[in-house]
Write a protein that binds this DNA or RNA. Structure first.
Lengths: 344, 344
DNA sequence: TTGTAAGCGTTATCAC
DNA sequence: GTGATAACGCTTACAA
């Protein structure tokens, strides 16, 4: 049974209003009174009830963040960046993991709204997230999309240039001699997947390589998705000489499947992906990746959100597009055998 | 300006109470009335205000989790496990990252309490977390400690057998020939650090190896800590032949420092640590670790918490101790040169 | 099956 | 500087 302002007021021999003033660092409280109240607060372990507080003041100084997969280092870093930026602006951050489930995501969105967070940072699970986001947009509730966009939705967003990134990644594979390049592509209808696929196609096309649907393997963007996609890839012939995985988790899953079949990377098959893998990059730099500035995604998005919350957002949605960086490591170098096979 | 029960009631031509009953799936509402209300809700994008709701009902079906470092895969997995278990029990999970700062941790703790979550999962930043936790304990607020314990605090907790784990890890290093084994040890006064240090000492003692303080390098349990610890380690002679890092992040930092100096692992120096590094284990199995069942930490803790929240917790604190598993990979094998040096 | 009244803990407003 | 009062949006308890 938590104590209340009233209990504190009684113990300190003042009115609840005075207690409220002390809690909120109001100027106009006599130092002596202040001390009495502070003592009473300490004695009762009093913690102000945000629920009641929010009911009147309707500003919580709290932002919400919903990510589709906290285990993915990309989103973990987004989280870290958002936390830091929010904190600098005087806000706290509450985080929820939707585990790529639009239903769960919607629940958390409503939860956070009903907790009266001042604004929301959302990395949408899929295009279906629109259903949950639309009411927010209509009501003018402040939110910023991260990483993935939603079609026909004019709102603030921080994203990558996925087309260009995927194109460069694919061009790199082509440049070092690959011709049969598989793409593990997002099965959900989501923007990053679509855009990366487009970049992949553009690069192939520019190099005069036919873009066969047989080289496209649809998958969920997680480990198990990458794993299964490569399993089905290996079930058919001829094998590609390199794989472009839609993101880091898919690449990890792909790697598992390859290893299980005794295939080495890059000895037998090359592998590249979007998003670096935190820690791995330090402990064992190996995977060639298109590295997105994940922490910056988080911090910029949080900054945008704070601006919008504080009414400086303007009318229409603002879009920030960040550039990614190609980091070439050894996972796609062509070694023994591969060029020969490619030449077929 | 979000809409309220009253607005919905008005639109639907009923009383606010009827709206409340519809929201809460009460039986006693005529189907026709229900539909009217539901339509009004949809039309107004009405989302119940949890703040107001919590003010009366005082059950939020939400749990809070505070971790010291979301970027650390150990805690990310704890989070994942806790989320899943909470969900199975009908609760949501709100997550906060204290970034190993006891002050920040305390703020978040109070935030979550003031949001009236039903219970709290806490992986304490350090022994100083006690200040924030003690009031909760006094008030009988349900919470469960994860990973690290707080001395003289009788509460629910899920932990590792750190002494045994550290002993086995050290024994392994000794068994393969290492004699000068450095330990990167937690600088904070926290339980896991203390216990791991004890295990390390026990193993050395049992093998008749002198346990010199010169081999102990105090550090913060993150990348930068490990990095600095190894820098100072390399500044003095003679170098150890192997390093036991207090956790995974410290090991990653250590690796960075070693690489910077052109030192290979395990070629020049062996390296082992507590906690596996997610993804790395798949992409490039390399580091020998004492792997803690992180996801189980989270799910068991959440289960314990739910029991306590629902009054099935009993009077005193319950402690669950989980076993870790030694995973031997190549990061500590003794290769060229090292045994010779060891023999000095 | 539906409505009325009171109150949850806080703060805004205005009075002293 | 401090206090009384009303209100925030909802639900519990009771009444119709």
């Amino acid at each position: 049974m938590p104590s209340t302002v009233r209990a504190v007021a009684k113990l300190a021999g003042v009115s609840p209003m005075t207690v409220s003033r002390v809690i909120n660092n109001a100027e106009s409280v006599a130092e002596e009174t202040r001390q009495k109240v502070l003592r009473a607060i300490a004695q009762l372990d009093y913690v102000p009830n945000r629920l009641a507080r929010g009911l009147t003041s309707s500003r919580s100084s709290t932002l919400g963040l919903v990510v589709p997969d906290v285990v993915n280092p990309f989103f973990t870093l987004v989280l870290r960046g958002a936390e830091a930026a929010a904190r600098r602006a005087g806000y706290r951050l509450l985080v929820c993991d939707s585990e790529n489930d639009p239903r769960r995501e919607r629940e958390y969105l409503e939860d956070l709204v009903s907790y009266r967070v001042d604004g929301l940072l959302v990395a949408p699970a899929s295009q279906r997230s629109k259903a949950g986001l639309l009411p927010l947009l209509r009501r003018g509730f402040p939110f910023v999309l991260i990483d993935r966009s939603i079609s026909n939705m004019d709102c603030d967003a921080v994203q990558s240039d996925n087309v260009a990134g995927a194109r460069r990644l694919t061009e790199h594979l082509i440049a070092i001699g690959h011709r049969r390049i598989a793409h593990l592509v997002d099965s959900d209808d989501n923007s990053t997947g679509r855009e990366r696929l487009q970049g992949y196609r553009e690069a192939l096309h520019a190099a005069g390589i036919e873009c066969s649907d047989a080289l496209l393997f649809h998958t969920s963007v997680d480990r198990i998705g990458g794993y299964r996609a490569v399993q089905s890839m290996l079930a058919s012939q001829p094998w590609p000489t390199a794989i472009f995985a839609v993101n880091n988790m898919t690449a990890v899953g792909a790697m598992e499947a390859l290893r299980e079949r005794g295939l080495g990377v890059p000895g037998d098959i090359g592998l590249v992906c979007f998003d670096d893998v935190e820690h791995l990059a330090v402990l064992s730099p190996f995977l060639t990746v298109m590295d997105q500035p994940a922490e910056t995604f988080g911090s910029l998005a949080a900054q945008m959100l704070v601006e919008r919350v504080e009414g400086k957002g303007g009318d229409s949605g603002r879009r920030i597009v960040l550039q990614s960086q190609l980091i070439v490591r050894e996972s796609c170098c062509i070694k023994t055998g591969v060029p020969a096979r490619t030449a077929l």
